[in-house]
Structure formats: C-alpha cells, structure tokens
Amino acid sequence: MWPTVSPQSRSSPSADGAAILRLEQLTRTFAVGDQFVRALDGVDLQVAAGEYISLMGPSGSGKSTLLNILGLLDRPTSGEYWLAGEQTSTMSDDRLADTRQREIGFVFQFFHLIHRMTAVENVELPMMLAGVPPAERRARAREVLQRMGLEARINHRSSQLSGGERQRVAIARAVVMQPKILLADEPTGNLDSVSGGEVIRIVEALHEEGLTLIVVTHDQALGSRAHRRLLMRDGRIVQDVSG
C-alpha cells in the first residue's frame, strides 16, 4: 500500500529516462511597483521519474518561484510545462487543483500544519479534500505516521510536537495521497541538525522507493546529497551536475 511504484521507476534514474517533468523556455515575471521583475528567465529542464534533485542558489535566484510552478501553485508567464506528459498551461484551475492533489506532495520550511488539529487529522486533510471515507483515511494516515516513527504522537495536536516531529507529520501529509513527485522547500531550514538529519533520512527513504524528489535548499551538505544538483542564478539554471 505504501507508494506503489513501477519497476522502471525503481531502477536508477537518468536524464534520458521517462521525463516526468519537462520545462521549455519557462519565464515568470512579477510586477513590483511600476517595474517588472523577471524571476525566471527562460528555464529549460527535464526531470525523469525517480530522480533526486537539489535546487540551490542565492536568495532571489528564482528557486522558490520555480518550485511553485513545478507544484502547480503558480503559472508561468510564458513557456511550457509538461507534467507526466500533460501540458499544464491548458489546464483549468480545477484541473490544476486535482492534479496537484494526485501527483504532487509539498513539504514546507514552516511545516504549515493546522494547529487546532491532531497529527493524524493533519495527515487526513488531503484525503478529506479528495473525499476518501473517514475510516479508510484514518487507517491510511495512521499507517503513514507509523512509518514516520510517530505512532506515539498520532493524537497530539501539532502545537504539542517538536519541530522535527512537525516536519515528519508534514511529510506524512505530503505523501499520504501517494504522489509521484515530492517538492520540499528548505525542509530542514527550521530544524536543528539532529531533527534535520532525521527528516533527510525519511525523504531519502521515500526516494529510494521511487518518489521523484526535488529539494530547494541553502544547505550545501543537504544539496550535495542529491544525485543531480541544479544551481540557479538570476532566474536561470546555470549549472546542472549529475552523479
């Protein structure tokens, strides 16, 4: 039941494998006052299913903007983005929301848990939006939380959890719908090194099971663990190193 993956995605990924993401000349421009700022400036990228990618670069280089577009939270100003072979620019808002729900998991620097809810309720949230019956989603949420080593914290409210525990709940929430892609924005940025290490171990284990993993980080040590490392500057990918 845990993220079911096809045999080929389990195999060692490479850039010429089945592309799960493909970007062509992607730009994103923001209006700031009466000026336009080009946050992404012609990005081309192809990601194969099952890759483990780190996205690094100085603040303002466009990492988060790219991550938001990859996660279908934002639309590019121009260029094309294919997700699992589908052109996203022609998708309606509802279609984007459904695709986001099915295909993509998010992990944020600040966890974004709902404080009034317990750990298990937070994990149930995406399944609730998808209309999964209560008994089934409770069972699935419990199972995922157990895998995160949080069985003792299932009924704790998020305010009663440590930072590391919160991030693990957030990861459980991100993967409970069994997405193909996990997008993590500074997942260890708000954690001490022990908790951060634990979180890295978990996401890498998920990747081992076939999940495509894209991590935005400032942390050189974390970034260098990825199999493919992208460096961004001024809205462009200036370095793309594999191995």
Binding site: D94, A97, D98, F106, H112, I114, L125, L129
Partner: peptide, 16 residues
C-alpha cells in the same frame, strides 16, 4: 489566509 493557502496546495478546488 495561510490555512486557505495550505488547503489549495493540498489540492482544494476554488469551489471547495
């Protein structure tokens, strides 16, 4: 606001 943003990130439609 943040909670609404999260719901959307988790796949909530506008109508939801």
């Amino acid at each position: 606001t943040q909670e609404i943003g999260l719901l959307k990130a988790l796949g909530a439609r506008r109508s939801q």
